[in-house]
């Protein structure tokens, strides 16, 4: 028995090590320009990479903030739109339900890229290309399927009984959703929200295409640096990218989890 536990621990630590190893490598790379094999630690060390980011001329911090808020907005709108859809699918049966479900989930099967060209043309016609709102709308496409999928499962697990009880006690439909359902949905919203944020934050090609170079997000700054082989800046930017998504995830988790207790959520 003891032996088993020892093996399990070794396995656990190896996995954690393998997952975090790339971050360490990135960290080292961000402080250097060249790191030739067979050196374990590079000799050429400098702050060039990081200085580039802080330099106001490059506007990187501004782009960072913009990307963060764009993805935040996308998350908010996605959840707003996905909640009623998930409620309908999770709690009701209606004609064409299966078809609608497949339709909503289609961006997972058909890459948004395939339809992005057509969308871009349409957006140009509507004057939405190269605008914040255009990008936001385009980001919704890959995000909504995941949010709907997660929230549908939560609605299915919750059932309609709590809502019925609330209405019996005198709450109208709006009050029921706000005072009873939303708190009960919280863990689901955490999951869906975190996932959607990451999806939106990582978008490259969609933003590039529909944004036309006018709207710049962090990914759009990052990729050229990776291509050009400037490892220092690329690594630094990558680390910031990871840091931001991690911060968002931990933040949302902390805010919602401090008010919750897993025992209350029988579906957890």
């Amino acid at each position: 028995m003891r032996e088993r536990k020892w093996v399990q621990e070794i396995l656990l630590y190896s996995i954690v090590f393998l997952l975090t190893l790339p971050i360490f490598i990135l960290l080292i790379w961000s402080f250097t320009k060249t790191w030739p094999w067979p050196d374990l630690i590079p000799k050429d060390v400098g702050l060039r990479g990081w200085r580039y980011i802080i330099d106001p001329h490059t506007k990187i911090l501004k782009i960072l903030c913009f990307s963060f808020f764009l993805s935040l907005a996308v998350t908010f709108v996605t959840l707003l739109v996905s909640l009623p859809a998930a409620k309908a699918i999770g709690q009701h049966n209606f004609k064409g339900k299966k078809a609608i479900q497949i339709f909503i989930l289609s961006p997972i099967i058909v890459p948004p890229l395939a339809v992005a060209m057509g969308i871009h043309v349409k957006f140009i016609q509507m004057g939405l290309a190269d605008t914040f709102w255009g990008i936001l709308l385009v980001h919704l496409i890959p995000c909504i399927p995941y949010a709907v999928r997660i929230l549908t499962n939560v609605y299915e697990a919750l059932g309609t009984r709590m809502e019925q009880q609330a209405r019996i006690l005198g709450a109208n439909r709006l009050q029921t959703q706000f005072h009873v359902m939303l708190p009960l949905l919280a863990p689901g919203l955490v999951s869906a929200g975190s996932l959607v944020f990451i999806i939106s934050f990582s978008q490259y090609f969609l933003t590039y295409l529909v944004g036309g170079g006018k709207i710049i997000t962090l990914s759009m700054v990052l990729f050229p640096f990776i291509e050009s082989g400037d490892r220092a800046i690329a690594s630094a930017l990558s680390l910031i990218f990871i840091a931001i998504t991690l911060i968002f995830f931990l933040l949302i988790n902390k805010i919602l989890r401090t008010h919750l207790n897993t025992q209350d959520y029988f579906y957890l």
Partner: peptide, 9 residues
């Protein structure tokens, strides 16, 4: 209801 349905939150 039979299972009381108290609001857990």
């Amino acid at each position: 209801f039979q299972d009381y349905l108290l609001f857990p939150h």
